[in-house]
């Protein structure tokens, strides 16, 4: 029933709306892989204003550090993992 499954290739929306956002700027527009599904959680972008709204599916997304930072100085094995709500994810073919 969820929109994404572990192993799916995704891109973080390259979008810059105003307001309270929990998707860090350094990950926007970056491509990663769904590592796991955590369940549906209250949407912080709505809860931050003491409003109610539908719960959002939350996923752990794994990014290669070298994909996030083109000049990354580390091991090519290094990854960044972040928890991203469904409405920030775009499926890649």
């Amino acid at each position: 029933m969820t929109q994404f499954a572990p192993g799916d290739l995704v891109r973080i929306r390259d979008d810059y709306p105003p307001g309270h956002i929990r998707t860090p700027i350094y990950l926007r527009g970056k491509e990663g892989v769904v590592e796991r599904y955590f369940g549906a959680f209250g949407n912080p972008e709505v809860l931050a204003y003491n409003l109610k709204g539908p719960k959002k599916d939350l996923y752990k997304i794994r990014f290669r550090a070298a994909d996030v930072w083109p000049d990354y100085q580390g091991s090519p094995k290094d990854v960044i993992e972040a928890d991203i709500y469904e409405h920030w994810l775009e499926k890649l073919a």
């Binding site: 309270h20 809860l47 931050a48 204003y49």
Partner: peptide
Amino acid sequence: MSSHESRRAIE
């Protein structure tokens, strides 16, 4: 004040 409201207020 939820943690979400607290973060928004700090921002």
